[in-house]
Amino acid sequence: MTKRSLGRAGAAALSLALATAMVPSALAQETGYRLYVSNEYSADISVIDPATDEVIETIPISERPGEVRPRGLGVSPDGSVVYISVSDFNTQLQSPEDQIIGIDVRTNDIVTAFHAGGNPERLAVSTDGTEIWASLEATAQVGGYHVDTGVQFAGLRVGVEAEGVAVSPDGQWVYVTAEATHSVSVIDRVNRMVVKHLLVGNRPRVVQFSPDGTRAYVSAEIGGTISVIDTSTHTVINTINLGLDARPVEIAVDPDGSRLFVAGGGTSAIYVIDTATDAVTNVIREQVGRRPWGVAISPDGERVYTANGLSDSITVIDTNCLCVVDSIAGGRGPHSVVVGLVPDAQ
């Protein structure tokens, strides 16, 4: 495993890094993807090779762990760059470390970093890869940024304590959740304007679009629900009840759109939902780490990974048996997990 330094690396450390990096690179090509896990309390990113289920590199994000935290993750459309929203723990503090950072999946180098004031919590990349939209928790706004320059081109008011962000597959809409106002704000991405606020479950966290873009799914932590939104009308058409104790946070959509995997932070369980019926078909509890918040699915849909905040681990689930097949030790306070694609392996 490689542990990078933020500062100038010594020759010995660099040699070690290069030597260890070669092995996982070859392994990563077997699967074509890597996992990136943001660790809230150790202020770093764990890079995991799914071929071995081992952490192959740890990328520090800040020299102030415990004060600065990486949280939400997003991926460029081709999967080659993983973006991280970084902010001070104190949401009211306008820290210079409030920023968006980009990591090249091929090299695991930080290739971009730009300021995003207002305590960015989560982000999404537009489908053309040119824009990043980030929820700004402290200012009740969503910020739009040019990927190539880092220049902010939009700052739109949404609900209080903005959190989840997603861009629709057709690139037309940006959906932003807000915890304190139990809302989703719908943004016309092209015209850069809020067109609607809609009420969802209590304390919404994350929003995800279906692959065909016809539906959006919003988790509600206190409500214990998933709101199903018809994106043609921007209206809630169904509410899936997971139970008040479920405390759902992140949602992963199966590549074919047939199932949702929802991280239940309150019950340390993963809820499996059939999108054809909006029914919960399975609840995976046994061997899941404690307080899963993050969840991601492999490109082939064969594996689901959860970031478990209280057990400092990543749980690996086989989507065929819907059973836990592995557990990986992570950093401190895993928050989110995404899949980055290794370009040469595609």
């Binding site: 048996c321 097949v325 592995d326 557990s327």
Partner: peptide
């Protein structure tokens, strides 16, 4: 990193 004991528990955990 791998917790081998979990592999044997694969069946019927859902």
């Amino acid at each position: 990193m791998r917790n081998r004991t979990l592999i044997t528990l694969a069946a019927a955990t859902a």
